[in-house]
Design a protein around this nucleic acid. Structure first.
Lengths: 263, 263
DNA sequence: AAGTGGTCTAGACCACTTT
DNA sequence: AAGTGGTCTAGACCACTTC
């Protein structure tokens, strides 16, 4: 009935019956739906469909890739599970964006011990361009000495400073980033990165430990020197597992805690 | 062709064609595969299939529940995603267990800053039965004053004490738990709970903060009083989201860190 | 009414494991 | 060879949204 999708690595021609094979004899072979998933991911990465936009329907994609709707469906199921897209019944499938309430708490895990989480107030302390320190260069997959943008800021809740953040971003990707744009932008920083610089954070790894506040830090957070703080070192990745942000946060956890779920 | 599964809430009789409906007019209705999933979960919970054992094949389950294999498959897909079962191609589907290398790191997130994770050595400091403090009773969904088992222990890596744990367990569920059984048991504590007491931890929530070591804690961990420590408060749940463990860990994070992934 | 994702079925073939 | 989970297809109907 159907014709084998010639641009994919599978079955050159299909045997009798309806189903068709899922592996050829090529050096690389993966299930069809994985290949479809990779193709869709490529389109997301290239900006063919931008954050917040509607992607083609399952039927359209099935026609485009010459596979069944069920196969496209399984590909999108996985993309949805990885938070790259969001399905909405009756409407369609949308490219995920950081400009949504539900997406916020994936990357900001600090919660007040009691009551509802409040929006953070940001105070930018410093933005400058510098040569990547060896450690940052290693984590960002850059050469030591490559240009990076350094940001230092304090986040407050209800007027009380709680988080001191330091960020390092690849200079090439975030060329026009200035203090003004950071300050005037409302909403989460990842929303700014996504909208203004076309870089979307997909996942991150964190290393958490307890440290003591030194003099400088204590001053910025309004605590006594030596106060125990949560140190959160984060590396964020975009499409293709490319590292695009190194962040070091110091959290004052007297009345807040880092919330984590072990699934 | 097929007959509607009368023990499920859906379609009393099925219309022409192959597919059949997914919602009735009953007060409660959920997709068929969710109902199947609930039935399988109940069998896991009741011990019909024990940890490590093989559960019936998809074909058998489809016959038992009078649904298609595809529907059983979708139910098991979700159970697999939730780590309740493990699929092995060609062999079958097995009930998940804590006695596996892969399951360890889901609940022990402390890693050495460099090198491979080592097995922990446990030193049990105290095991006693007491009346649940108000906070513990609240978290375990018990009445204040109900009997709980309290455990205090130190975990070391390469002979260096790193973790001080305090645990509270419902007395009813862990009747025969003694210091001896804790000490003589090899492997992870959740393995003991699962094998000896039939209580399997499914998921947990954690609240993490930084605190200073007091005199008693400092002595047990061999650090100076006032040293910043990671405080990890965990509540673990078994089937049916029933809380069955409260744990408070203090981690010395000078050469270790808590590893977390943000998906 | 038309289009979208969500559910369910039936059947085919594949890859892997055991007998 | 037989049994298991894994992939793929085709088609039906449902729930929801928009026109």
């Amino acid at each position: 009935m159907s014709v084998a999708p010639s641009h994919l690595t599978n079955s050159p021609v299909l045997a009798a019956g309806t189903g068709h094979s899922s592996s050829g004899s090529s050096p690389t072979f993966s299930p069809l739906y994985q290949q479809i998933k990779a193709l869709i991911t490529r389109s997301l990465q290239s900006g063919e469909w931008k954050p917040g936009e509607l992607i083609p329907s399952e039927v359209e994609l099935a026609a485009r890739y010459k596979v069944s709707q069920g196969t496209v469906r399984k590909a999108i199921d996985e993309l949805s599970a990885e938070n790259l897209v969001v399905r909405r019944q009756g409407k369609g499938t949308f490219v995920a964006t950081h400009h949504e309430a539900r997406a916020q708490f994936r990357f900001l895990r600090l919660m007040p011990d009691t009551g509802e989480p409040h929006p953070a107030e940001n105070r930018v302390i410093e933005v400058k361009r510098l040569r990547a320190p060896a450690e940052v260069a290693r984590l960002l997959d850059l050469r030591a000495g490559d240009s990076v943008i350094f940001i230092k800021r304090v986040q407050s809740f209800d007027g009380v400073p709680i988080i001191l953040d330091e960020l390092w971003l690849p200079g090439l990707l975030f060329k026009g980033l200035t203090t003004e744009r950071l300050v005037e932008y409302k909403g989460p920083m990842y929303g700014l990165f996504e909208t203004e610089f076309g870089t979307r954070m997909i996942r991150a790894t964190e290393r958490i430990r307890a440290v003591a506040a030194d003099e400088a830090v204590a001053g910025l957070l309004g605590v006594a020197s030596g106060t125990p703080l949560l140190s959160v070192e984060r590396v964020s990745y975009t499409y293709g597992d490319k590292p695009v942000e190194v962040r070091r946060g110091l959290y004052h956890t007297e009345n807040h805690h880092y919330q984590n779920e072990l699934g």
